[in-house]
Amino acid sequence: ERVRARYDYEAQNEDELSFKKGDIITVLEKDDGWWKGRNGKEGLFPSNYVEELE
């Protein structure tokens, strides 16, 4: 599954994923509120910062 970033997100910890608004992220795992994904790097990000691609 792929999602698009709705906002910029700056990683707060080294296991998190940074991205810019409009970036496409491949979702690897979904957990409550935090998803694991890849966009060149791999890490956790808040699920409310992304939207599913149509």
Rank of each mutant, 00 (worst) to 15 (best):
I25M: 05
K30V: 06
R2D: 07
S18V: 02
V50T: 07
D15T: 13
K41F: 10
D8W: 05
G22W: 04
E54A: 13
V27S: 01
R2N: 09
K20H: 09
A5H: 01
E14M: 10
P46S: 06
N48P: 06
T26F: 11
S47F: 09
K20W: 07
L17Q: 01
Q12T: 12
E1W: 15
I24R: 03
V27G: 02
G37F: 00
A5K: 03
G43M: 02
D32A: 10
K20F: 09
K30G: 02
W34K: 07
G40I: 12
I24E: 05
N13I: 03
T26K: 07
Y49L: 14
E54Y: 13
P46H: 06
L17P: 00
L28K: 03
D31W: 15
V3L: 06
E14D: 13
K21V: 11
K20P: 00
S47H: 09
E29L: 11
L28F: 08
V3F: 11
Y9R: 06
E42M: 12
E54H: 13
Y9L: 02
D31H: 15
N13V: 06
D15Y: 15
G33L: 13
E1D: 12
R38I: 10
L44Q: 08
D31F: 15
K36E: 00
G37Q: 01
Y9M: 04
R6G: 05
N13L: 06
Y9C: 06
L53R: 05
G43Y: 01
R4I: 12
V3A: 08
Y49M: 12
G37I: 00
K41W: 08
P46W: 07
L53G: 06
I24W: 09
E52F: 12
G33S: 12
G22C: 08
E54D: 13
E14P: 15
E42V: 15
G22S: 05
R2K: 14
D32M: 09
D8H: 06
V27T: 02
I25G: 01
P46E: 03
R4P: 01
T26Q: 11
R38T: 11
R4L: 09
W35T: 05
K20Q: 09
E42W: 06
D32E: 14
F19H: 00
G22A: 03
G37W: 00
K20C: 10
G43S: 02
G33E: 12
Y7K: 11
W35D: 00
G33I: 14
R4S: 04
D23Q: 08
I25D: 00
E51D: 09
N13Y: 07
G33T: 13
K20A: 08
E42A: 09
R6D: 02
D15K: 13
Q12N: 10
T26E: 14
A11T: 04
V27I: 12
K36W: 13
D31C: 15
I25T: 01
D8C: 09
K30C: 06
E10T: 14
D23W: 06
F45G: 00
K20N: 08
N13A: 10
G37S: 01
E54Q: 13
N48R: 12
I25L: 10
D31P: 10
F19I: 05
N48C: 15
E1Q: 14
E52I: 12
I25W: 00
E29C: 14
L44N: 08
K21S: 09
E16T: 04
G37C: 06
G37D: 00
T26I: 14
E16P: 03
T26S: 09
R2P: 05
A11P: 06
L17V: 06
E16R: 01
F19A: 00
D32L: 10
G37E: 01
R6N: 06
S18M: 03
L17H: 01
D23V: 04
G43R: 01
K21Q: 10
R2T: 11
E14Y: 09
T26R: 06
L53D: 07
T26Y: 13
I24Q: 04
L44E: 03
E1M: 15
R4M: 10
D31E: 14
E1T: 14
A11C: 05
V50L: 03
E16G: 08
V3N: 04
I24M: 09
I24T: 05
K36Y: 14
E1H: 15
D15A: 13
G22L: 04
E42F: 08
K41R: 14
E14W: 09
Q12E: 10
G40C: 10
P46I: 03
E10L: 12
N13W: 06
K36A: 05
W34V: 06
A11Q: 05
V50K: 02
E54W: 13
D8Q: 05
G40T: 12
E51C: 09
D15S: 13
L44V: 13
G43A: 02
R38V: 08
